[in-house]
Amino acid sequence: MADPFKPRAPFAPWDRRQLPGMFDVEETARRVGNYKWAEMKLFEALGGWIATVPELDVKMRLGTHCYHHAWHAELWHKRLPELREMNPDRLTLPANDAMVEFVAALTEPEAPETTIEKLVGVYRVFIPHFISAYTFHMNNTSEITDAPTIRTLKLALQDEFDDWRDGEMMLQSLIETPEEVDRAAAHHAKLEKLMLAAGGIAGPGSIGNLPAVKGN
């Protein structure tokens, strides 16, 4: 057996985590507050829509997904005090007014004939933007100092990917005519423009700012 008292490197050769990260505590708390606000709006919308969609399979999926996003909101809520924000409500905020506008437009459809619009908003716009913001955050924060945020991001991302796939499959099965393709695309474009104005789930910089490259 190997000598248990032999000195070993604290970081094993396969552990390549790096100390530097793009976000300080304050910026992390700000982003987390935006995530929590957006996840809350998402689970509330999904919950409200359950009664409004006639498609039984969609109804059940919305109920399941509603909880996923409530749980993400809860995880972010619990992370805030760990980021020196002792009053989590203070930072539970939309990234900006455009984000509020986006959520208002997202939750506008109610009629039973508008399941396509409801699903497009969630699964083709909102959730893809969660995926991108979370991925950016996960890949750019300190892998050592901010490990708890990374863990939550990974848990949330797993749900986001699974839910996105569910939603996309429901949409593909609901869209049966070229007119419905147009309907989905028009609603998608409308919401995507609002999201563009908001700059993403955490506002401008949600997925970083690409450095300008000088031409020759």
């Binding site: 919950g47 059940m60 999926r61 109920g63 509603c66 909880y67 409530a70």
Partner: peptide, 12 residues
């Protein structure tokens, strides 16, 4: 509200 979301999943 979190409890109600959990319940929605259970009822689903």
């Amino acid at each position: 509200k979190l409890d109600m979301a959990r319940q929605a999943w259970d009822e689903a």
